[in-house]
Simulated scan of single mutants.
Amino acid sequence: MSAGDRPHGTVEAGARPAARVAWIDRARGIALVAMVVFHFSYDLDMLGVTQWDVGGAPGWRLFAMSIAGSFIALAGVSLQLAHGRGVRWRGFLRRLGQLMLAAAAVTLATHYAMGAAVWFGILHAIAVFSVLALPFLFAPGWLVALAALLTLAAPHLLTSDVFSHPALYPLGLSPTRWFALDYEPVFPWFAATLAGLLVARIAPLPRGPVASDLLARMGRHSLVIYLLHQPILLAILMGARQLGLL
């Protein structure tokens, strides 16, 4: 997933070819593979082919959380790399608009197809967190780390009925647990984005030629894959059922 006039993790185009931080693309590719595995398993369970309790078993829940956390943290890494020396507003706003449109498409598709809409899932979260993270791009590392710790602690310290209004649903501070197919509220999930900002500052991020392996190519087209993989999986499984293969 890229944001801006050039992809996340790239250097400005000039006399030499554009370069990327290949491990970011590959990390996104790995997260995409894990996401496809999870959703394929969920679909098999939903169709009654398996009895794995993908939506409720602790192990599956932990798997889903690790996938979501990976995407959100990598968004933070990319944001710091792309805008850490100054926000390039044209690119930032263009990418933000893409995320908002994609998130709206997910909400509408899940509402009409499943009757249980995703109101604040991964794409919604990354869009909101990208805006919330802007001041932290230029903040001292200790302040970013402190904000991450406070974000993690907030659900344990600030949960109250005051936050139960549906308009405050994205905060994640209501004592009422919302039923949602995908839900990554600000508290505590924004901490993953802040952690990504710190990783981009601390970890060695060698740039090189654009990687051509499958994982890297998947990572560079992660938004498209994210949007299309589930309809494709469901179409395959429903087709297999119609043919008597399931």
Rank of each mutant, 00 (worst) to 15 (best):
G14A: 13
G14V: 06
G14M: 03
A15M: 05
A15I: 13
R16G: 14
R16A: 13
A18P: 01
R20T: 10
R20P: 02
R20M: 14
R20A: 09
A22Y: 08
A22T: 09
A22R: 03
W23Q: 00
I24K: 04
D25L: 08
A27G: 10
R28L: 09
G29L: 02
I30C: 12
I30W: 13
A31D: 12
A31C: 11
L32Q: 06
L32P: 03
V33G: 10
V33A: 15
A34K: 04
M35W: 08
V36Q: 00
V37G: 04
F38V: 05
F38E: 02
F38G: 00
F38R: 01
H39S: 06
H39W: 00
H39E: 01
H39Q: 08
F40Y: 06
F40D: 00
F40S: 11
F40M: 01
S41K: 07
Y42P: 03
Y42T: 02
Y42L: 15
Y42I: 01
D43M: 11
D43C: 01
D43F: 05
D43R: 04
D43G: 01
D43P: 04
L44R: 11
L44V: 14
L44H: 12
D45F: 15
M46N: 08
L47Y: 14
G48F: 12
V49L: 10
T50H: 05
Q51E: 12
W52N: 09
W52T: 14
W52P: 09
W52R: 02
D53E: 14
D53A: 08
D53N: 13
V54Q: 05
V54C: 06
G55W: 15
G56F: 12
G56R: 12
G56C: 13
G56P: 06
A57Q: 14
A57P: 01
P58T: 07
W60S: 05
R61H: 10
R61N: 14
R61D: 10
F63D: 01
F63W: 07
F63C: 06
A64V: 02
M65R: 06
S66R: 10
S66L: 12
S66F: 13
I67A: 09
I67W: 02
I67K: 03
A68L: 00
G69H: 07
S70K: 00
S70F: 00
S70W: 03
F71R: 00
F71G: 01
F71Y: 11
I72S: 10
A75V: 09
G76P: 08
G76R: 06
V77M: 11
S78H: 03
S78N: 10
S78E: 13
S78Y: 08
L79W: 00
L79V: 04
Q80R: 09
L81E: 00
A82L: 10
A82D: 03
H83Y: 02
H83N: 02
R85C: 04
R85L: 06
R85Y: 03
G86W: 02
V87R: 07
V87F: 06
